[in-house]
């Protein structure tokens, strides 16, 4: 019982912490619903991505929904179509705050497909 109480206490602390004012305000992009539960994604998106990466590249198993392309399509800002361009861009904003550095967008497009297509026409 005491254990449960401690657990609950800890959890409520972390929730309170997560909503603290100094956490980054992110431009979540299009909105709607994430491919998994938001709280789960916060913790596990990197595992989801790396799993999908190996499935796709090594075995050819493509699942459009959890592909990195799909994250970008939805999470890219509605104002500049990017997930990394600004301080509050979705992937970059949180990673800067958390001091995480990813190299994914050196190769992968960080902009919405529509924005890239437009650029091609110019």
């Amino acid at each position: 019982m005491r254990l449960l109480a401690t657990l609950l206490l800890c959890m409520s602390f972390s929730v309170a912490w997560a909503t603290e004012a100094n956490t980054p305000k992110l431009d979540i992009g299009k909105g709607g619903e994430c491919v998994r539960d938001t709280q789960w994604m916060r913790k596990n998106h990197m595992h989801l991505l790396k799993h999908q990466r190996d499935e796709t590249v090594r075995k050819g198993v493509r699942d459009e929904q959890v592909s990195l392309k799909n994250c970008v399509e939805c999470h890219a800002s509605k104002s500049d179509n990017s997930v990394v361009a600004r301080e509050d861009s979705f992937c970059a904003g949180c990673h800067r705050y958390e001091a995480v550095k990813i190299d994914c967008f050196e190769c992968h497009a960080s902009k919405r497909r529509a924005a890239l297509a437009k650029k091609d026409e110019q």
């Binding site: 992968h108 497009a109 902009k111 890239l116 650029k119």
Partner: peptide, 10 residues
């Protein structure tokens, strides 16, 4: 500005 279907990098 790589093609989203064809990631490439240095």
């Amino acid at each position: 500005d790589q093609n989203p279907d064809v990631p490439r990098g240095k």
